[in-house]
């Protein structure tokens, strides 16, 4: 999904600086603590948690309900944008201070994607329609033109072509070639709600989508055409989709009652790798850009887990009780 786009952007940045040594990366999880939510419409805690070197998760940034993700400006990691129910919240000093940069009209922001080739250009998927910023998130404008239905929760900025954006809506995948000023439906995408979009960091032509009731979909031509993949999960609600930035052939999807499913042959075959997890309900998956091959999985309320052998064995990673929305890797400022 968009986390992949960010992983990709940050990975590229990391690659560029590799000569100077391995760049430090911060690992964030956007979650709501719902496990202990009783007699209440609000979770006991929510927001962004950052994983410390010792494995502890520490709350980061403002405590706002409904935080879906966070994004960092490529090349300027001190500029952070939080996607929240209250709108977009921006920091220009690595999280020391924050400012809401959207008005009352913007709500339920679920994901944010910077254009890796034009870091001033940002897109956000909201459940009431996408929005766009031309100044790195300081100001925003609606970006609805051409959309049949406005609901969206996942967006990626094509890392291979500036100004090209793909968004998952209630009506399938839409594409924009003009920085979200106009949208066109991708004809071969499934006519259902697209829950997660991801672009490969190893091969920009490779994209993966998780959908509601229609399973996993794969594109090998940069999102121009899509084909369903993994017949075993063909009717599942897949909330998670991830592509290994170190190996284009390796990918994973996960969903409700679908567990974790992985492919190491570019989507030709898929294998269930749920054994060892406490539940089969998966909301987020991400390949670690720092530790090649490591796969992170967020279960519904039963914690975060990671695997270094593509899901054959899993290790507890904390955040018990969390309902996860996204994993984000960002270069440390």
């Amino acid at each position: 999904m968009k986390s992949s786009a960010r992983i990709l952007a940050t990975f590229l940045a990391a690659t560029l600086t590799a000569a100077a040594g391995s760049p430090p990366m911060d690992f964030y999880a956007a979650v709501a603590m719902t496990k202990a939510q009783k007699n209440s419409s609000t979770p006991t805690d929510s927001g962004l948690y950052r994983r410390e070197a010792d494995g502890r998760w520490v709350h980061f940034g403002p405590r706002i309900l409904g935080i879906g993700s966070v994004a960092a400006q490529p090349g300027h990691p001190a500029v952070l944008l939080i996607a929240s129910a209250d709108g977009v919240v921006r920091s220009t000093d690595a999280g020391r201070t924050w400012r809401k940069t959207t008005g009352w009209e913007v709500l339920d922001v679920r994901s944010i994607a910077f254009d890796p080739l034009n870091p001033l250009q940002v897109y956000a998927a909201t459940q009431w329609g996408p929005i766009r910023s031309d100044d790195a998130g300081a100001n925003w404008t609606p970006a609805h033109a051409g959309l049949a239905k406005l609901y969206s929760q996942t967006v990626i900025a094509d890392r291979t072509r500036s100004g090209r954006v793909l968004i998952g809506t209630e009506d399938g995948i839409y594409e924009s070639a003009d920085a979200a000023r106009t949208w066109t439906r991708v004809a071969t995408s499934p006519a259902t709600t697209v829950l997660r979009l991801a672009q490969s960091g190893a091969n920009g032509q490779l994209l993966l989508a998780g959908t509601q009731h229609r399973g996993a979909w794969l594109s090998r031509d940069g999102g121009l055409t899509w084909q369903q993949t993994d017949p075993a999960s063909a009717t599942a609600n897949l909330y998670a989709a991830a592509l290994n930035p170190h190996d284009a052939a390796v990918m994973a999807v996960g969903g409700w009652n679908a567990g974790v499913r992985v492919s190491n042959d570019g989507g030709a075959t898929w294998t269930d790798r749920t054994a060892g997890l406490p539940v089969k309900h998966i909301f987020v998956l991400a390949f670690d850009p720092v530790t090649p091959g490591r796969l992170w999985a967020s279960t519904f309320e039963e914690g975060t887990f990671y695997s270094d052998d593509l899901g054959r064995t899993w290790h507890e990673g904390g955040l018990y009780g969390a309902y996860g929305f996204d994993y984000i890797f960002i270069p440390a400022p």
Binding site: T34, Q37, K38, N39, S40, S41, G66, A85, D108, R110, Q127, L195, Q212, N237, Y239, W256, N257, H281, F283, F300, Y323
Partner: peptide, 14 residues
């Protein structure tokens, strides 16, 4: 805005 599979559960909690 909740997911298809969690929305009923989360409504019932309040």
């Amino acid at each position: 805005g909740e997911a298809w599979d969690t929305v009923t559960d989360l409504i019932v909690r309040s």
